[in-house]
């Protein structure tokens, strides 16, 4: 409802506009503060941080941290920087995002548009998956990976993230598809279209807004996941979060906060990009019924 609410005398309208901007800017400052600190940290030197303070204005601009973070920082004997870990995360997050979105779309479609016996119970079970903390799923997943022979592989992680993601994507898609008129379905069925045909021809073309929502949600979630990523992979297969934590936690007595900050900025780039590109559609997709 972007209807203009600024009626009334012009002067007071102007003042209220100013007030709006001031409040927004204060909030923006609050939201940006941690980012600002990260950026400042990423261009300082370690000695400077140890001798002065963790938070502070850089005395000298030290841009080398970015090069070190990207290409030469050592995680034990692997002196490769975070580049290969970024690659691992991409290899893991992209297929898992696509698969979980597609499966969620189909499941949501089936639940929303093909009323079948027990559909609500089915939906309830799927949604319950959303509420289970991931720490509790650690050991069961270990068993599943062992039994499927996918332990210590990115394929195993893709499987986990796909299955776990389906709960969320189904929830989103089902709510969205509820707004598709049943008449459309009936017409299609009279024309002799089956389950898959209707999905591909009618439902999917209507879906982009909600698919963007689920893609953003899934991609950022998977990209930032740490626990499974570090436990279910080995050595050079580890995802970006494992590298970031390795950098951030340091050893008993050496903390390369500056390089870690640079790595955080680089590592956060893909999800930020997704948000920036998809932000507009995110709200639009939600508007069109993701939250019924």
């Amino acid at each position: 409802m972007s209807a203009t609410l600024n009626k009334g005398p012009r002067a007071s309208a102007m003042w209220s506009r100013i007030a709006i901007y001031v409040v927004i800017l204060v909030f923006a400052a609050f939201f940006l503060a941690p980012l600002a600190v990260t950026i400042l940290t990423s261009v300082r030197s370690n000695t400077e941080m140890a001798q002065r303070s963790l938070i502070g204005w850089p005395q000298h601009l030290d841009l080398s941290n970015f090069a070190v973070a990207w290409g030469s920082f050592c995680i034990a004997e692997h002196c490769t920087g975070i580049a290969p870990y970024m690659y691992n995360s991409a290899v893991m997050a992209i297929p898992a995002t696509i698969l979980s979105t597609l499966l969620g779309a189909m499941a949501g479609y089936a639940i929303a548009l093909w009323r079948f016996r027990g559909d609500n119970i089915m939906f309830g079970l799927v949604v319950l998956g959303v509420f289970l903390p991931e720490q509790m799923r650690l050991i069961p997943w270990t068993v599943v990976l062992r039994d499927t022979g996918l332990a210590n592989s990115l394929a195993g992680l893709i499987m986990i993230h796909t299955i776990q993601g389906v709960s969320f994507t189904t929830l989103f898609c089902r709510n969205y598809y509820l707004s598709i008129p049943q008449d459309l379905m009936k017409a299609a069925r009279i024309d002799g279209a089956g389950f898959y045909r209707i999905f591909w021809r009618i439902v999917l073309p209507l879906s982009p807004p909600i698919l963007i929502v689920t893609v953003i949600w899934q991609f950022t979630g998977i990209w930032n996941e740490f626990l499974f990523g570090v436990i279910f992979t080995s050595g050079t297969q580890q995802p970006i979060t494992a590298a970031l934590v390795a950098l951030g936690s340091g050893g008993q007595n050496v903390h390369a906060y500056n390089v870690a900050a640079a790595a955080v900025l680089i590592g956060a780039f893909p999800p930020l990009l997704v948000y920036f590109l998809g932000g507009k559609y995110f709200v639009r997709g939600l508007t069109q019924g993701a939250i019924k």
Binding site: I75, T142, I231
Partner: peptide, 26 residues
């Protein structure tokens, strides 16, 4: 041949990794 697998983070993560490996028979 040295095949080291560092598990960054808290000690619990390393223990979890170990548990996962043992449970997988490896």
């Amino acid at each position: 041949i040295w095949q080291h697998n560092p598990v960054p983070g808290f000690t619990t993560e390393m223990m979890n990794k170990l548990r996962a490996q043992i449970m997988s028979g490896d």
